[in-house]
Simulated assay, not measured.
Amino acid sequence: MSSSYVRLFGYNFFISTFTFGGGYVTIPMMEKYFVNHGDLSKEELLDLATIAQSSPGAIAVNLSVLVGKKARGYKGAFVSGVAAIMPSFVILSLISLAYSAFQNNPMVRAVLQGMEAAVAAIIVDLVIDMYFALRREKNLWLMILPFFAFVANAFFNVHPLWILILAAVFVVLQRRVANA
Score class of each variant (00 low, 15 high):
Ser2Glu: 12
Ser2Cys: 04
Ser2Pro: 08
Ser3Phe: 08
Tyr5Asp: 06
Val6Ser: 12
Phe9Asp: 04
Gly10Thr: 08
Tyr11Pro: 00
Tyr11Val: 15
Ile15Met: 09
Ile15Ala: 04
Ile15Val: 06
Thr17Tyr: 01
Thr17His: 01
Phe18Thr: 11
Phe20Tyr: 13
Phe20Leu: 14
Gly22Gln: 00
Thr26Tyr: 03
Pro28Asn: 12
Met29Glu: 05
Glu31Trp: 10
Lys32Ile: 03
Tyr33Asp: 07
Val35Gln: 06
Val35Met: 10
Gly38Gln: 14
Asp39Leu: 00
Leu40Cys: 09
Ser41Trp: 14
Glu43Thr: 12
Glu44Asp: 14
Asp47Tyr: 02
Leu48Met: 13
Gln53Thr: 11
Gln53Lys: 11
Ser55Glu: 07
Ser55Pro: 11
Ser55Gln: 12
Pro56Ser: 14
Gly57Asn: 07
Ala60Arg: 02
Val61Asn: 12
Asn62Phe: 08
Val65Thr: 12
Gly68Arg: 10
Ala71Trp: 00
Arg72Trp: 00
Arg72Ser: 07
Gly73Thr: 03
Ala77Tyr: 12
Ala77Leu: 08
Ala77Arg: 03
Val79Met: 06
Val79Ala: 08
Gly81Cys: 07
Ala83Cys: 02
Ala84Gln: 07
Ala84Asp: 08
Ile85His: 08
Pro87Arg: 06
Pro87Asp: 11
Ser88Met: 05
Val90Asn: 06
Ile91Glu: 00
Ile91Phe: 15
Leu94Asp: 01
Ile95Arg: 05
Ile95Gln: 09
Ile95Trp: 06
Ala101Gln: 11
Ala101Pro: 01
Asn105Met: 07
Met107Val: 13
Arg109Pro: 00
Val111His: 02
Gln113Val: 02
Gly114Cys: 06
Gly114Met: 04
Met115Glu: 02
Met115Cys: 11
Met115His: 03
Val119Glu: 01
Ala120Asp: 08
Ala120Asn: 13
Ala121Ile: 09
Asp125Pro: 01
Val127His: 05
Val127Pro: 05
Met130Leu: 14
Met130Phe: 14
Ala133Leu: 01
Leu134Trp: 12
Leu134Asp: 09
Arg135Gln: 15
Arg135Cys: 02
Arg136Thr: 13
Arg136Glu: 13
Glu137His: 10
Lys138Leu: 06
Asn139Asp: 10
Leu140Gln: 13
Ile144Thr: 04
Pro146Met: 08
Pro146Val: 06
Ala149Tyr: 03
Phe150Cys: 15
Phe150Arg: 12
Val151Met: 12
Val151Pro: 01
Val151Ile: 10
Val151Ser: 02
Ala154Arg: 15
Ala154Cys: 15
Asn157Gln: 08
Asn157Thr: 14
His159Ala: 11
Pro160Ser: 12
Trp162Pro: 06
Trp162Ser: 04
Ile163Gly: 03
Leu164Ile: 15
Ala167His: 02
Ala168Trp: 12
Val169Ser: 05
Phe170Ile: 06
Val171Arg: 13
Val172Phe: 00
Gln174Val: 01
Ala178His: 05
Ala178Pro: 00
Ala180Phe: 07
Ala180Thr: 10
